[in-house]
């Protein structure tokens, strides 16, 4: 029941934002949005809400706080890839890291963050929750350990993912 309500409310908010045109919404617009949101809520409630762990406001605050180090890393690493594009100096390789996360949401968040920060691209995930990451400039020191150290690949993202979604 709560899954259905949460999905419907989320759909309705997105509808309101998308149909916003600078004035108040017309009544027929709101009605159509409500009907479609309820329909979407019925169909998608089990997909959108698996459990209620993420409903905790503390996790949302952590997520908002996470955006700042994320965008800093993203800007820094983008300049790095820009340098590699111009000079062509690359040392690619696929490395294995074990972030030690279990929940699906945390792993999705970590994999997407890794992909969005340039220089690393998550390729695959095995049964033991180890991530395989394509790294455009493999560090010499990182190859000595197995699995590879998490720090140079994903900065502090695994800790943030644990705080937000584990």
């Amino acid at each position: 029941m709560w899954a259905f309500i949460g999905t419907t409310v989320f759909c309705f908010i997105v509808w309101l934002a998308l149909s916003f045109n600078g004035h108040m919404w017309a009544n027929d617009e709101l009605l159509a949005g409500a009907v479609l949101s309820v329909a979407a809520g019925v169909v998608a409630r089990t997909l959108f809400v698996r459990d209620f762990k993420m409903a905790h406001p503390k996790r949302w605050l952590f997520f908002l706080a996470y955006l700042f180090p994320f965008f800093y890393e993203m800007a820094k690493a983008n300049l790095d890839v820009a340098y590699r594009v111009v000079t062509g100096r690359i040392r690619p390789g696929i490395v294995k890291i074990s972030p030690g996360l279990k929940s699906d949401i945390a792993l999705t968040m970590l994999a997407n963050s890794i992909t969005l920060t340039p220089g690393t691209l998550s390729v695959d995930l095995d049964e033991d929750n180890n991530l395989y990451v394509h790294w455009i400039n493999v560090d010499e020191g990182a190859l000595e350990e197995m699995p590879r150290p998490c720090r140079p690949v994903c900065a502090s993202f695994s800790q943030w993912a644990r705080r937000v979604a584990e």
């Binding site: 690359i90 040392r91 690619p92 997407n112 691209l121």
Partner: peptide, 30 residues
Amino acid sequence: NPTGAHAIARAAHRSGVVPLQAVVDDLEEH
């Protein structure tokens, strides 16, 4: 965007595209 990139990379590796100039390939070993 990252989800799509992940799907393309995974599909490429599954269909046997070898990373060129690679110094290490842990996924192939696995």
